[in-house]
Design a binder for these strands. Sequence first.
DNA 1: CGGACAATCCCAATATGTTGGTATATTATC
DNA 2: GATAATATACCAACATATTGGGATTGTCCG
Lengths: 188, 188
Amino acid sequence: MQTGNSVIIHSSPIIQQGFKNILLARNIGITDVMVAVPEDMLLNSWKDMLILVETQFMDEIKEHAKVIKKNGNCIVGVETAGFFNRLDSCFDDIFYVYDNLDTINQKLMEYISGVSDVKSDNQLSHREIEVLTLVAQGFSNKQIADQLFISIHTVITHRKNITFKLGIKSIPGLTLYAALNNLVDFQR
Amino acid sequence: MQTGNSVIIHSSPIIQQGFKNILLARNIGITDVMVAVPEDMLLNSWKDMLILVETQFMDEIKEHAKVIKKNGNCIVGVETAGFFNRLDSCFDDIFYVYDNLDTINQKLMEYISGVSDVKSDNQLSHREIEVLTLVAQGFSNKQIADQLFISIHTVITHRKNITFKLGIKSIPGLTLYAALNNLVDFQR
DNA sequence: CGGACAATCCCAATATGTTGGTATATTATC
DNA sequence: GATAATATACCAACATATTGGGATTGTCCG
């Protein structure tokens, strides 16, 4: 599995995607939000990551928490119901799904002040993500060039780099990658 | 496919953003996901919209539900806890935050089949589904022809019919359609 | 029987994407 | 201050997709 700088382990796709949007929208150095399952946490050697874990999985990760934290990771619980007790848990903090935006921002600020510079590995650049997003929406290279105010040659170059970095050559493959990683941004 | 907008009325920003990502990432004609409060529902004259409402707000909108639905809107409840009873509610459907992706996709397909202008009896033939599946997997027309032991012309003809029947012209659009209908693997 | 449809095949013109180069300016990073 | 990464731009050749026609078989069904 690729290394990014944030992981969400949660059984609800809606909450997965919600955190993804919220984390990526803030300029706190998080460029990638992976979705994972509890088992991934035990097998992978993540470093300096923000790991969001549904509180119900606490028992499964409890005994490994120390090792995981030694690798510079920050483990934050995600609680839906609201009556989870943080004190006897292994979490550095708790996000409640019903937290308002101010609370979420404050907690995220605490996270970035506590973690050393996070570096993304072989990830796509911002511009490449933009191009991939538009490719996955079915726009032609010409249309993408017009939307980004760059020449079609630049779009083609970006696409070359994207296919090289991801190892995905086909448009359907890129589309599914974009859908799965929610790189698709329709907000404009 | 019809164009449509969507509104989410929910007190959790995480769930707001989660639905935003999930709705926009699918090619089901939703191009905008607004965030609103219950009062907006009573004041606005929305039409042909997918309105997602946190179930706790049901009482506030109950008496207006009939008028809202007359305007072509579809009101869907969003439930976090999981023990909301749909039968005596004003909702057309319920999204549970812990629904898995298959369930979400299925419910969304029901929504678009209810309001879209694509006729449900305009079904794809068996051969067309085979071709669509291979297209969504990234095979070229030539490769598809070889796999199905038919000429490339036949593949092209099938593709013309598919795009005509579905009203989806782009390969990414067809890919997401195939993913939504479980013709290709959408899981990690 | 005749109509609708599915599945098959063909052609030509045009549009679009891919590949393999090269190249420069700017900005991070060491 | 050097190096790496990013974003930008261009070209030519080739591959593939799209579009807009036309056509033949067989099957199912009223």
